[in-house]
Amino acid sequence: MAHQDVLAAHPIRARRRLPLDWLGIVPFAAFALLFLILPTLNLIAGAFQDRDGAFTLQNIVNLFTPSIMAAYWISIKVSLASALIGGFMGFVMAATVTIGGLPGWVRSPLMTFAGVASNFAGIPLAFAFLATLGRTGLLTAFLMNVFGFNLYSTGFNLLSFWGLTITYLFFQIPLMILIITPALDGLKKEWAEAAASLGASRLQYWRMVALPILWPALLGTIVLLFANAFGAVATAYALTGSSLNIVPIVLFTQIRGDVLQDPNLGYALAFGMIVITGVSNGIYIWLRARAERWLR
């Protein structure tokens, strides 16, 4: 039996010389087309069609109403703020356990926690922040009872730009930690020592060597964080209902109830989201290519 199989293997091997290798990724290609690429392209096409399917730019023009523009603007602001602040804080925390001289045992729990926190998004995250910084939340009550400080009298509101940003940081910071830690590990100790022996201060080393080396990774992660926040629906929806008009929520309510009275405007709205994440990635690829001339 086994003997026959060995003999049988030869013709199979010979047949495989035919250029049919590509057949192996047909299932994946079909999946990607049906459930990722075609739906996206279909929406993009829809953004340029009127109700009868004819080409039009009217949907795009219709985006430029004050309310929709305001939605894009607040979305971009929240995404950018949470990406930049989260990126910075994540970088600092990753730096403390990699190059900050902390003992080795700190690192593993922090990384595990970052793994958990980066996936603790969506609706439960909103609940946690409502329970903490909401009107009757723990921290709000604590500040009131102990310091007599009324958080909400300062104009703070969890259902606002800053509230949303602070909440998003809960998954943005850990994501940054997870991605940037390997990059920080890649900084060789000898580079710092070589710089010092050449007379460079710590600051000069960071400015001239370490940051340029980290730049592509930093940039890539910030863009990823931006896209991550920009497309997030669940946390914002559970936190604010539809009271804060960020783009994903406008789109969400539009899909659910057609509040814009115009499905094609919905496609344009989605198209706008793709354009913004696409452009941010384009900027990233362009900057990365410029920054990485020294890489293989």
Binding site: A194, A196, S197, L198, V209, I213
Partner: peptide, 22 residues
Amino acid sequence: LKPNQRNIGMVFQAYALFPNLT
């Protein structure tokens, strides 16, 4: 004195050239 105040040249085993500079 700190290393960067000693005016010493040093060569390392693993080259330690700055990869981002020519």
